[in-house]
Design a binder for these strands. Sequence first.
DNA 1: CGGACACCATGG
DNA 2: CATGGTGTCC
Length: 436
Amino acid sequence: MALFQQLRVSPAQVSLAAVLKCGQSFRWSIFPLPTPETKPEAGQGSLDTPLADALKGVPTHEYRLCLKDRVVCLQQSSDTLFYRSAFPDPQPSPAQRAEKEVETLAWIRDYFQMDVDLEDLYAQWALQDKVFAKFQDRFKGIRILRQDPWENLVSFICSSNNNISRITKMVHNLCKQFSPPLLSLPDPSDPSQTNTYHPFPPPSLLATPDVTGTLRTLGFGYRADYIQRTAKMLFDTHTAAPLSSGLREPSEVWLSGLRLQDTSKAREELLKFVGVGRKVADCILLMSLDKKEVVPVDTHVYQIAVKHYGLKGSSGGKVTMTPKLYDEVNARLQSLWGDYAGWAHSVLFTADLKIFSTYGLESSSPVKVQSTSKKAKKAKAITAVMGEPMSPLTPLPSPTQTPVKRKLEVVETVLETTELTTLAERIKRRKRGGKP
DNA sequence: CGGACACCATGG
DNA sequence: CATGGTGTCC
Protein backbone atom coordinates (compact mmCIF):
# COMPACT_ATOMS: atom_id res chain seq x y z
CA MET A 1 0.00 0.00 0.00
CA ALA A 2 1.56 3.18 0.73
CA LEU A 3 2.46 6.05 2.81
CA PHE A 4 0.56 7.89 5.40
CA GLN A 5 -0.10 11.49 4.60
CA GLN A 6 -0.53 13.98 7.37
CA LEU A 7 -3.06 16.58 8.17
CA ARG A 8 -2.62 18.97 11.05
CA VAL A 9 -5.75 18.75 13.16
CA SER A 10 -6.47 19.34 16.80
CA PRO A 11 -8.38 16.60 18.59
CA ALA A 12 -10.65 19.39 19.76
CA GLN A 13 -11.71 19.78 16.16
CA VAL A 14 -12.10 16.09 15.44
CA SER A 15 -11.86 13.07 17.65
CA LEU A 16 -11.92 9.94 15.54
CA ALA A 17 -12.32 7.72 18.57
CA ALA A 18 -15.47 9.51 19.60
CA VAL A 19 -16.98 10.32 16.25
CA LEU A 20 -16.54 7.09 14.35
CA LYS A 21 -18.27 4.85 16.81
CA CYS A 22 -20.88 6.99 18.43
CA GLY A 23 -23.76 5.83 16.33
CA GLN A 24 -23.47 8.03 13.28
CA SER A 25 -21.78 5.69 10.85
CA PHE A 26 -21.86 1.97 11.45
CA ARG A 27 -19.44 0.93 8.77
CA TRP A 28 -16.01 1.90 10.00
CA SER A 29 -13.71 -0.94 10.93
CA ILE A 30 -11.73 -0.17 14.05
CA PHE A 31 -8.43 -1.82 14.91
CA PRO A 32 -6.41 -1.43 18.07
CA LEU A 33 -2.80 -0.88 17.14
CA PRO A 34 -0.11 -3.06 18.68
CA THR A 35 1.02 -1.08 21.67
CA PRO A 36 4.65 -0.12 21.76
CA GLU A 37 5.37 -1.10 25.34
CA THR A 38 7.54 1.90 25.08
CA LYS A 39 7.30 5.22 26.71
CA PRO A 40 9.60 7.85 25.31
CA GLU A 41 11.94 8.19 28.26
CA ALA A 42 13.37 11.59 28.77
CA GLY A 43 16.89 12.30 27.78
CA GLN A 44 16.78 9.75 25.06
CA GLY A 45 18.35 11.77 22.34
CA SER A 46 16.85 14.60 20.40
CA LEU A 47 13.16 14.95 20.86
CA ASP A 48 12.69 17.93 18.66
CA THR A 49 12.24 16.20 15.38
CA PRO A 50 8.90 16.02 13.63
CA LEU A 51 8.91 12.38 14.46
CA ALA A 52 9.38 13.10 18.12
CA ASP A 53 6.45 15.47 17.96
CA ALA A 54 4.29 12.78 16.56
CA LEU A 55 5.41 10.48 19.28
CA LYS A 56 3.85 12.68 21.87
CA GLY A 57 0.50 11.30 20.97
CA VAL A 58 0.86 7.93 19.47
CA PRO A 59 -2.15 6.65 17.56
CA THR A 60 -3.79 3.81 19.36
CA HIS A 61 -6.20 2.75 16.65
CA GLU A 62 -6.60 2.56 12.94
CA TYR A 63 -9.96 3.27 11.33
CA ARG A 64 -10.92 2.02 7.89
CA LEU A 65 -13.85 2.69 5.62
CA CYS A 66 -14.48 1.12 2.23
CA LEU A 67 -15.66 3.60 -0.38
CA LYS A 68 -16.76 2.72 -3.91
CA ASP A 69 -13.26 2.66 -5.30
CA ARG A 70 -10.85 2.68 -2.37
CA VAL A 71 -10.38 1.95 1.28
CA VAL A 72 -9.52 4.94 3.42
CA CYS A 73 -7.32 4.30 6.46
CA LEU A 74 -6.97 6.78 9.30
CA GLN A 75 -5.01 7.20 12.49
CA GLN A 76 -4.87 10.12 14.86
CA SER A 77 -2.24 11.47 17.22
CA SER A 78 -2.39 14.46 19.52
CA ASP A 79 -1.94 16.89 16.69
CA THR A 80 -2.14 14.99 13.46
CA LEU A 81 -4.57 13.03 11.37
CA PHE A 82 -2.79 10.36 9.35
CA TYR A 83 -4.45 9.12 6.22
CA ARG A 84 -3.78 6.87 3.29
CA SER A 85 -5.73 4.97 0.68
CA ALA A 86 -5.66 1.45 -0.65
CA PHE A 87 -6.77 0.61 -4.17
CA PRO A 88 -7.90 -2.53 -5.98
CA ASP A 89 -5.44 -4.33 -8.10
CA PRO A 90 -4.44 -2.51 -11.16
CA GLN A 91 -2.28 -0.57 -8.73
CA PRO A 92 -1.96 3.07 -9.63
CA SER A 93 1.42 4.38 -10.65
CA PRO A 94 3.21 6.60 -8.14
CA ALA A 95 2.05 9.60 -10.08
CA GLN A 96 -1.55 8.46 -10.13
CA ARG A 97 -1.36 7.59 -6.51
CA ALA A 98 -0.31 11.10 -5.64
CA GLU A 99 -3.38 12.41 -7.40
CA LYS A 100 -5.59 9.95 -5.66
CA GLU A 101 -4.33 10.90 -2.25
CA VAL A 102 -5.32 14.42 -3.08
CA GLU A 103 -8.81 13.11 -3.80
CA THR A 104 -8.79 11.26 -0.54
CA LEU A 105 -7.82 14.40 1.30
CA ALA A 106 -10.71 16.19 -0.37
CA TRP A 107 -12.99 13.39 0.68
CA ILE A 108 -11.78 13.61 4.27
CA ARG A 109 -12.30 17.33 4.44
CA ASP A 110 -15.81 16.91 3.13
CA TYR A 111 -16.74 13.87 5.20
CA PHE A 112 -15.56 15.41 8.45
CA GLN A 113 -16.81 18.85 7.45
CA MET A 114 -13.45 20.31 8.38
CA ASP A 115 -14.51 23.80 7.38
CA VAL A 116 -16.81 24.01 10.35
CA ASP A 117 -14.94 25.31 13.35
CA LEU A 118 -16.06 23.05 16.16
CA GLU A 119 -14.32 24.97 18.92
CA ASP A 120 -16.20 28.08 17.94
CA LEU A 121 -19.44 26.17 18.12
CA TYR A 122 -18.62 24.74 21.53
CA ALA A 123 -17.94 28.23 22.82
CA GLN A 124 -21.28 29.45 21.59
CA TRP A 125 -23.24 26.56 22.98
CA ALA A 126 -21.54 26.90 26.33
CA LEU A 127 -22.64 30.49 26.40
CA GLN A 128 -26.28 29.63 25.99
CA ASP A 129 -26.51 26.35 27.80
CA LYS A 130 -25.17 25.78 31.28
CA VAL A 131 -25.53 22.06 31.01
CA PHE A 132 -23.39 22.09 27.93
CA ALA A 133 -20.91 24.45 29.54
CA LYS A 134 -20.37 22.10 32.40
CA PHE A 135 -19.65 19.06 30.32
CA GLN A 136 -18.14 20.29 27.12
CA ASP A 137 -14.65 19.33 28.19
CA ARG A 138 -15.56 15.70 28.32
CA PHE A 139 -16.74 15.62 24.75
CA LYS A 140 -14.15 17.35 22.71
CA GLY A 141 -14.00 16.82 19.02
CA ILE A 142 -17.46 15.45 18.45
CA ARG A 143 -18.83 16.60 15.15
CA ILE A 144 -21.43 15.53 12.64
CA LEU A 145 -20.12 13.53 9.72
CA ARG A 146 -21.34 14.28 6.22
CA GLN A 147 -22.29 10.79 5.20
CA ASP A 148 -23.48 9.22 1.99
CA PRO A 149 -27.28 9.61 1.98
CA TRP A 150 -28.11 6.16 0.62
CA GLU A 151 -25.92 4.35 3.10
CA ASN A 152 -27.25 6.56 5.83
CA LEU A 153 -30.84 5.81 4.88
CA VAL A 154 -30.39 2.06 4.94
CA SER A 155 -28.33 2.10 8.12
CA PHE A 156 -30.96 4.02 10.02
CA ILE A 157 -33.80 1.88 8.82
CA CYS A 158 -31.86 -0.78 10.70
CA SER A 159 -31.71 1.35 13.81
CA SER A 160 -35.26 1.00 15.02
CA ASN A 161 -35.59 -0.94 18.24
CA ASN A 162 -31.93 -1.67 18.02
CA ASN A 163 -28.55 -0.97 19.51
CA ILE A 164 -25.27 0.22 18.05
CA SER A 165 -23.39 -3.04 18.21
CA ARG A 166 -26.05 -5.00 16.43
CA ILE A 167 -26.65 -2.32 13.83
CA THR A 168 -22.92 -2.39 13.12
CA LYS A 169 -22.93 -6.12 12.57
CA MET A 170 -25.99 -5.92 10.36
CA VAL A 171 -24.53 -3.24 8.13
CA HIS A 172 -21.25 -5.11 7.75
CA ASN A 173 -23.08 -8.29 6.88
CA LEU A 174 -25.20 -6.45 4.37
CA CYS A 175 -22.12 -5.15 2.56
CA LYS A 176 -20.42 -8.51 2.61
CA GLN A 177 -23.51 -10.25 1.26
CA PHE A 178 -24.60 -7.91 -1.51
CA SER A 179 -21.52 -6.10 -2.64
CA PRO A 180 -18.53 -7.70 -4.37
CA PRO A 181 -15.23 -7.41 -2.50
CA LEU A 182 -13.12 -4.42 -3.51
CA LEU A 183 -9.81 -5.51 -2.00
CA SER A 184 -8.09 -7.09 0.96
CA LEU A 185 -5.61 -5.66 3.45
CA PRO A 186 -3.58 -7.02 6.32
CA ASP A 187 -5.14 -6.59 9.71
CA PRO A 188 -3.37 -3.82 11.64
CA SER A 189 -3.95 -5.67 14.88
CA ASP A 190 -2.56 -8.87 13.51
CA PRO A 191 -0.66 -8.60 10.21
CA SER A 192 -0.80 -12.35 9.72
CA GLN A 193 -4.51 -11.96 9.13
CA THR A 194 -6.10 -10.33 6.14
CA ASN A 195 -9.41 -8.48 5.88
CA THR A 196 -11.61 -8.07 2.86
CA TYR A 197 -13.49 -4.86 2.21
CA HIS A 198 -16.82 -4.43 0.48
CA PRO A 199 -18.33 -1.11 -0.60
CA PHE A 200 -21.86 -0.25 0.44
CA PRO A 201 -24.23 -1.83 -2.09
CA PRO A 202 -26.10 0.60 -4.37
CA PRO A 203 -29.93 0.62 -4.52
CA SER A 204 -30.07 -1.65 -7.57
CA LEU A 205 -28.43 -4.48 -5.66
CA LEU A 206 -30.94 -4.34 -2.84
CA ALA A 207 -34.04 -3.80 -4.94
CA THR A 208 -34.77 -7.35 -6.07
CA PRO A 209 -37.47 -9.38 -4.27
CA ASP A 210 -35.09 -12.11 -3.13
CA VAL A 211 -33.20 -9.61 -1.01
CA THR A 212 -35.82 -9.72 1.72
CA GLY A 213 -35.32 -13.40 2.41
CA THR A 214 -31.56 -13.10 2.38
CA LEU A 215 -31.62 -10.22 4.80
CA ARG A 216 -33.85 -12.18 7.12
CA THR A 217 -31.36 -15.00 7.27
CA LEU A 218 -28.81 -12.37 8.18
CA GLY A 219 -30.87 -11.39 11.18
CA PHE A 220 -32.48 -8.21 9.91
CA GLY A 221 -35.90 -9.26 11.11
CA TYR A 222 -38.81 -7.11 10.02
CA ARG A 223 -36.37 -4.50 8.73
CA ALA A 224 -35.45 -6.80 5.85
CA ASP A 225 -38.68 -5.98 4.08
CA TYR A 226 -38.32 -2.25 4.73
CA ILE A 227 -34.89 -2.18 3.16
CA GLN A 228 -35.81 -4.12 0.06
CA ARG A 229 -38.93 -2.06 -0.54
CA THR A 230 -37.10 1.19 0.08
CA ALA A 231 -34.36 0.19 -2.36
CA LYS A 232 -36.92 -0.79 -4.97
CA MET A 233 -38.96 2.34 -4.50
CA LEU A 234 -35.93 4.56 -4.83
CA PHE A 235 -34.58 2.64 -7.79
CA ASP A 236 -37.87 2.42 -9.66
CA THR A 237 -38.79 6.01 -9.12
CA HIS A 238 -35.52 7.66 -9.91
CA THR A 239 -33.70 5.48 -12.37
CA ALA A 240 -34.38 6.37 -15.94
CA ALA A 241 -31.46 4.96 -17.86
CA PRO A 242 -29.80 1.62 -17.12
CA LEU A 243 -27.00 2.23 -14.69
CA SER A 244 -24.27 4.14 -16.39
CA SER A 245 -21.65 2.04 -14.66
CA GLY A 246 -20.62 5.20 -12.91
CA LEU A 247 -19.64 5.20 -9.31
CA ARG A 248 -23.03 6.33 -8.20
CA GLU A 249 -26.40 5.28 -9.49
CA PRO A 250 -28.93 7.88 -10.62
CA SER A 251 -31.22 7.20 -7.69
CA GLU A 252 -28.36 7.79 -5.28
CA VAL A 253 -27.63 11.06 -6.98
CA TRP A 254 -31.27 12.01 -6.70
CA LEU A 255 -31.25 11.25 -3.00
CA SER A 256 -28.19 13.42 -2.52
CA GLY A 257 -30.07 16.14 -4.32
CA LEU A 258 -32.22 16.52 -1.23
CA ARG A 259 -29.30 18.44 0.20
CA LEU A 260 -30.40 21.33 -1.93
CA GLN A 261 -34.02 21.19 -0.81
CA ASP A 262 -35.21 22.87 2.34
CA THR A 263 -35.61 20.81 5.48
CA SER A 264 -39.38 20.32 5.29
CA LYS A 265 -39.32 19.24 1.69
CA ALA A 266 -36.43 16.86 2.23
CA ARG A 267 -38.11 15.35 5.26
CA GLU A 268 -41.32 14.92 3.34
CA GLU A 269 -39.48 12.91 0.71
CA LEU A 270 -37.73 10.72 3.26
CA LEU A 271 -40.97 9.88 5.04
CA LYS A 272 -42.26 8.27 1.85
CA PHE A 273 -39.95 5.33 2.37
CA VAL A 274 -41.14 2.38 4.42
CA GLY A 275 -39.31 2.01 7.66
CA VAL A 276 -38.64 5.72 7.84
CA GLY A 277 -40.53 7.65 10.49
CA ARG A 278 -39.87 11.06 11.95
CA LYS A 279 -36.91 10.02 14.04
CA VAL A 280 -35.07 8.17 11.31
CA ALA A 281 -35.86 10.90 8.81
CA ASP A 282 -34.38 13.51 11.12
CA CYS A 283 -31.23 11.47 11.61
CA ILE A 284 -30.76 11.32 7.85
CA LEU A 285 -31.48 15.02 7.45
CA LEU A 286 -28.81 15.84 9.98
CA MET A 287 -26.18 13.29 9.12
CA SER A 288 -26.18 13.22 5.36
CA LEU A 289 -28.41 15.95 4.00
CA ASP A 290 -26.77 19.03 5.50
CA LYS A 291 -29.66 19.93 7.79
CA LYS A 292 -27.50 20.96 10.72
CA GLU A 293 -30.32 22.48 12.75
CA VAL A 294 -32.37 19.30 12.99
CA VAL A 295 -32.43 17.58 16.36
CA PRO A 296 -33.51 13.93 16.18
CA VAL A 297 -35.55 13.00 19.22
CA ASP A 298 -35.32 9.50 20.54
CA THR A 299 -36.44 8.17 23.88
CA HIS A 300 -33.18 9.02 25.52
CA VAL A 301 -33.02 12.55 24.24
CA TYR A 302 -36.54 13.02 25.44
CA GLN A 303 -35.72 11.86 28.95
CA ILE A 304 -32.75 14.16 29.17
CA ALA A 305 -34.78 17.02 27.81
CA VAL A 306 -37.32 16.49 30.54
CA LYS A 307 -34.75 16.14 33.25
CA HIS A 308 -32.37 18.92 32.37
CA TYR A 309 -34.00 21.23 29.94
CA GLY A 310 -37.31 21.85 31.56
CA LEU A 311 -39.60 20.03 29.21
CA LYS A 312 -42.76 18.64 30.54
CA GLY A 313 -42.44 15.00 31.31
CA SER A 314 -45.67 13.29 30.67
CA SER A 315 -45.20 9.82 31.91
CA GLY A 316 -46.51 7.30 34.25
CA GLY A 317 -43.90 4.71 33.71
CA LYS A 318 -44.36 4.82 30.00
CA VAL A 319 -44.62 7.59 27.54
CA THR A 320 -45.74 7.55 24.00
CA MET A 321 -43.79 10.04 22.05
CA THR A 322 -46.52 11.69 20.12
CA PRO A 323 -45.79 13.75 17.05
CA LYS A 324 -46.72 16.83 18.97
CA LEU A 325 -44.44 16.00 21.85
CA TYR A 326 -41.66 15.21 19.40
CA ASP A 327 -42.03 18.65 17.90
CA GLU A 328 -41.97 20.31 21.26
CA VAL A 329 -38.75 18.66 22.29
CA ASN A 330 -37.30 19.31 18.89
CA ALA A 331 -38.25 22.98 18.87
CA ARG A 332 -37.08 23.58 22.40
CA LEU A 333 -33.61 22.18 21.82
CA GLN A 334 -33.35 23.91 18.50
CA SER A 335 -34.10 27.26 20.01
CA LEU A 336 -31.63 26.65 22.79
CA TRP A 337 -28.72 25.66 20.62
CA GLY A 338 -29.41 27.62 17.49
CA ASP A 339 -28.42 27.10 13.92
CA TYR A 340 -26.22 24.10 14.59
CA ALA A 341 -28.58 22.52 17.11
CA GLY A 342 -28.25 19.09 15.57
CA TRP A 343 -24.52 19.22 16.11
CA ALA A 344 -24.90 20.20 19.73
CA HIS A 345 -27.31 17.36 20.20
CA SER A 346 -24.78 14.90 18.94
CA VAL A 347 -22.17 16.18 21.33
CA LEU A 348 -24.37 15.66 24.33
CA PHE A 349 -26.24 12.55 23.32
CA THR A 350 -24.33 10.38 20.94
CA ALA A 351 -21.13 10.26 22.89
CA ASP A 352 -21.62 9.25 26.44
CA LEU A 353 -25.12 9.16 27.73
CA LYS A 354 -24.16 7.95 31.14
CA ILE A 355 -22.93 11.20 32.58
CA PHE A 356 -26.46 12.47 32.67
CA SER A 357 -27.72 9.71 34.84
CA THR A 358 -25.75 11.09 37.72
CA TYR A 359 -26.18 14.69 36.87
CA GLY A 360 -29.00 16.02 38.98
CA LEU A 361 -29.08 19.65 38.10
CA GLU A 362 -31.92 22.05 37.66
CA SER A 363 -32.69 23.08 34.14
CA SER A 364 -29.98 25.19 32.65
CA SER A 365 -31.97 28.12 31.47
CA PRO A 366 -35.23 29.56 32.69
CA VAL A 367 -37.07 27.35 30.33
CA LYS A 368 -40.77 27.36 30.65
CA VAL A 369 -42.91 24.53 29.54
CA GLN A 370 -44.82 25.37 26.45
CA SER A 371 -48.48 26.14 26.40
CA THR A 372 -49.64 22.66 25.71
CA SER A 373 -50.19 21.24 29.12
CA LYS A 374 -50.71 17.57 29.51
CA LYS A 375 -50.77 15.46 32.52
CA ALA A 376 -47.44 15.75 34.25
CA LYS A 377 -46.26 12.65 35.94
CA LYS A 378 -42.87 11.54 36.99
CA ALA A 379 -40.53 10.40 34.30
CA LYS A 380 -39.47 6.83 34.69
CA ALA A 381 -39.47 4.43 31.87
CA ILE A 382 -39.98 6.04 28.55
CA THR A 383 -40.38 3.74 25.65
CA ALA A 384 -41.17 4.97 22.23
CA VAL A 385 -40.71 7.87 19.92
CA MET A 386 -43.20 8.35 17.19
CA GLY A 387 -42.98 9.81 13.78
CA GLU A 388 -45.23 12.13 11.89
CA PRO A 389 -45.25 13.92 8.60
CA MET A 390 -43.29 17.10 8.49
CA SER A 391 -44.17 20.00 10.64
CA PRO A 392 -43.43 23.68 10.28
CA LEU A 393 -40.87 23.42 13.02
CA THR A 394 -41.52 26.83 14.41
CA PRO A 395 -38.50 27.66 16.47
CA LEU A 396 -39.20 29.38 19.72
CA PRO A 397 -37.68 32.75 20.38
CA SER A 398 -34.09 31.83 19.84
CA PRO A 399 -31.75 33.30 22.41
CA THR A 400 -28.85 33.93 20.19
CA GLN A 401 -29.12 32.54 16.74
CA THR A 402 -25.39 32.41 16.50
CA PRO A 403 -24.30 32.15 12.93
CA VAL A 404 -21.13 30.20 12.79
CA LYS A 405 -18.42 31.60 10.69
CA ARG A 406 -16.47 29.00 8.94
CA LYS A 407 -12.91 29.43 9.77
CA LEU A 408 -10.40 27.16 8.23
CA GLU A 409 -8.64 25.82 11.21
CA VAL A 410 -7.13 22.88 9.55
CA VAL A 411 -3.70 23.37 8.21
CA GLU A 412 -3.21 20.78 5.62
CA THR A 413 0.41 20.14 5.50
CA VAL A 414 1.83 17.07 4.02
CA LEU A 415 4.82 17.46 6.20
CA GLU A 416 6.71 14.33 5.59
CA THR A 417 5.38 11.22 4.08
CA THR A 418 5.21 8.78 6.84
CA GLU A 419 6.10 5.24 6.19
CA LEU A 420 3.60 2.55 5.73
CA THR A 421 4.56 1.14 9.03
CA THR A 422 2.58 2.21 12.01
CA LEU A 423 3.87 4.82 14.33
CA ALA A 424 4.14 2.20 16.97
CA GLU A 425 6.54 0.28 14.85
CA ARG A 426 8.58 3.38 14.21
CA ILE A 427 8.84 4.02 17.86
CA LYS A 428 10.34 0.66 18.45
CA ARG A 429 12.88 1.16 15.75
CA ARG A 430 13.70 4.56 17.04
CA LYS A 431 14.36 3.14 20.42
CA ARG A 432 16.61 0.51 18.99
CA GLY A 433 18.75 3.14 17.46
CA GLY A 434 16.87 4.22 14.40
CA LYS A 435 17.56 1.38 12.04
CA PRO A 436 14.79 -0.70 10.57
C1' DC B 1 -55.40 12.03 16.18
C1' DG B 2 -54.04 9.59 20.46
C1' DG B 3 -53.32 4.85 21.89
C1' DA B 4 -52.19 -0.05 21.66
C1' DC B 5 -49.47 -3.68 19.62
C1' DA B 6 -46.90 -6.52 16.63
C1' DC B 7 -42.42 -7.01 14.57
C1' DC B 8 -37.04 -9.64 15.11
C1' DA B 9 -32.91 -10.58 17.38
C1' DT B 10 -29.78 -9.92 21.02
C1' DG B 11 -28.24 -8.93 25.53
C1' DG B 12 -29.15 -8.12 30.61
C1' DC C 1 -38.09 -8.39 29.63
C1' DA C 2 -36.28 -3.90 27.35
C1' DT C 3 -34.00 -2.05 23.44
C1' DG C 4 -31.60 5.20 19.44
C1' DG C 5 -39.15 2.96 16.10
C1' DT C 6 -42.38 2.17 12.53
C1' DG C 7 -46.62 0.46 10.38
C1' DT C 8 -51.21 -0.65 11.17
C1' DC C 9 -55.50 -1.05 13.18
C1' DC C 10 -58.92 0.94 16.30
